[in-house]
């Protein structure tokens, strides 16, 4: 479904600040996959998401979604089939607008016409979907989204994304900015939606436990490369310790390589 061919991204190419953020990544994602991604800061996880969503363009390599080469497609065009949730809960909604307006914008994803879509039928549909969130938002359709809490806004962002029926969803540590209770709630909601709508998912997380527990495939990234890729039973049975061990084994090897180079 998604094929990434020798994808690289170099920032500030040709200057002293040259930074290889993504180094020749090859990746193939199947429909219905739920991939968790771990890695230290600066490993290139978010850059990979930026490349897939089209926020930035690769230096070399190709990205295919559903057999279509989207490497040169701008972000807004890819958004029709790629949904993305950011760490910051304010990124997914317009706070100076009402809940119903926000949902209307999300419901008809893509090019907008001079049609007035928001009517009572659509409002009822929104209420029904919002009541699933169990947050009382179904009674606040006319309230500005800016009045809602971070957890409510992130839940709303999730719902709005699901309504637009994306082929792939990218979750970039989308619970990290929330308090533990809300983070738990958002994670449960995410898992529910992934199951209900059979969403192909890529999720960045700093929580190794979550990375092991959820999904059918796990990627470990470091210095712009995918250094470890497991799925199925291997992934299910791996422990935190084994992962850390693996990480250190691979990193040590690199470390020694550096030593050799420097000496």
């Amino acid at each position: 479904m998604i094929k990434i061919h020798s994808l690289s991204k170099v920032f500030h190419e040709g200057t002293v600040n040259e930074n290889k953020a993504i180094n020749t990544i090859n990746l193939s994602v199947k429909e219905g996959d739920f991939i968790t991604i771990i890695g230290s800061n600066g490993a290139g996880k978010t850059t990979l998401f930026n490349l897939i969503s089209g926020n930035i363009f690769p230096s070399t390599g190709r990205i295919e979604i559903n057999g279509r080469d989207v490497t040169k497609d701008p972000e807004y065009r890819r958004a029709a089939y790629v949904g993305r949730i950011f760490q910051n809960p304010t990124m997914g909604t317009a706070e100076t607008m009402t809940l119903e307006d926000n949902m209307t914008i999300a419901y008809y994803k893509g090019c907008k016409g001079l049609r007035k879509s928001l009517n009572n039928k659509l409002r009822d549909f929104f209420r029904e979907k919002l009541s699933d969130l169990d947050m009382g938002l179904e009674n606040r359709l006319k309230d500005n989204v800016g009045l809602f809490s971070g957890g409510q806004r992130q839940a709303l962002t999730l719902l709005m994304m699901v309504l637009s029926k994306p082929d792939l969803i990218l979750l970039d540590e989308h619970t990290a900015a929330l308090d533990p209770g809300n983070a738990r709630m958002i994670l449960d909601l995410t898992l529910k939606y992934i199951k209900d709508y059979n969403l192909t998912t890529m999720m960045i997380t700093h929580n190794m436990g979550h990375a092991i527990k959820y999904g059918n495939r796990l990627l470990m990234m470091d210095s712009g490369e995918i250094i470890y890729d497991i799925e199925g039973d291997t992934k299910k049975n791996i422990t935190k310790e084994a992962l850390i061990n693996k990480f250190e084994v691979i990193r040590k090897k690199e470390f020694e390589n550096d030593e050799v180079l420097l000496s």
Binding site: Y76, E95, M97, I105
Partner: peptide
């Protein structure tokens, strides 16, 4: 209010 949201919703 939020240009990123507009892009995320597939509008140029």
């Amino acid at each position: 209010c939020n240009e990123q949201m507009v892009i995320t919703q597939g509008v140029n």
